[in-house]
Amino acid sequence: MSMMEIRSLTKRYGSKTALDDVSLKIAKGSIYGLLGRNGAGKTTLVSLISNRDFPTSGEVLLDGANVKENDRALKNICCMGAEQLLPGYMRVKDVISSMRYFYKNTDAEYANALCEKFGLDPKKRLSRLSTGYRTIAKVIFAMSSGADYIILDEPTLGLDANHRELLYKLIIERFNETEAAFVISTHLIDECAGLFERVFVLREGRLIADEDSDALRRSAYLVEGKTAEVDSFIAGKKVLTRSEVGSFCSACVSGGDVPSPDALPDGLEVSQPTLQQLLIAMTEEG
């Protein structure tokens, strides 16, 4: 099976380390979440995978071949970033017709069908599109590219709830049809959580989790109740985060099985955190 392997990737900008010794594997036929706070290194990672930027050290391999200056490998990777690489005066239909020169498996018919579904006028110039529609256009270009690895950086930027729902549905449909690997970097974690089979979590440039999405959620639990009781319960346990509002306290505890309600002191409640709650707990500063 086709596989992308990222080995010890590090990127430094002067004294700032944007990405620190990140290693992970992306296999065709899975949907991955790339999660982390602003400045965690998600966009840097996408730029390095697509050869748009240079790593300070480390390498990106596709089926064993380094993607650096490798046209054959790069043709299998289509990265949609938040940045605007395409000239603003180009019309959406011009970009769609140009895609075939770069990605030989481009499905122009599918791209036009997506334009219709999203209500995007293909005759419009990119510069004339709203933020949301510009994002939609870029997502359409990436999804119709026919590439084996489709990396979507902030694909929901500026999209309304209806368009986001439609996008999630289309990603699943496309994934089922093509079995391409999708890597989705987003801040709308709970909305996308159902898509992800596996998640990568970055914190300050370091990969702090590379796990199956469900297993990651099961690796922690939330305890809520009165402060004194919560504090007494979590004593000696690995606490990811603890927050207090008045006399009420909530803590996210990592590791171990979720205690059954019968085993809990009165007044305490436990629950499974959502992926977003867990991410907040994992990536909170301090």
Partner: peptide, 16 residues
């Protein structure tokens, strides 16, 4: 300049 941006979008290596 336009081709440079488009080639970055289209997965063209710098060498090509």
């Amino acid at each position: 300049e336009r081709l440079m941006k488009l080639s970055a979008f289209g997965g063209v290596s710098r060498r090509s």
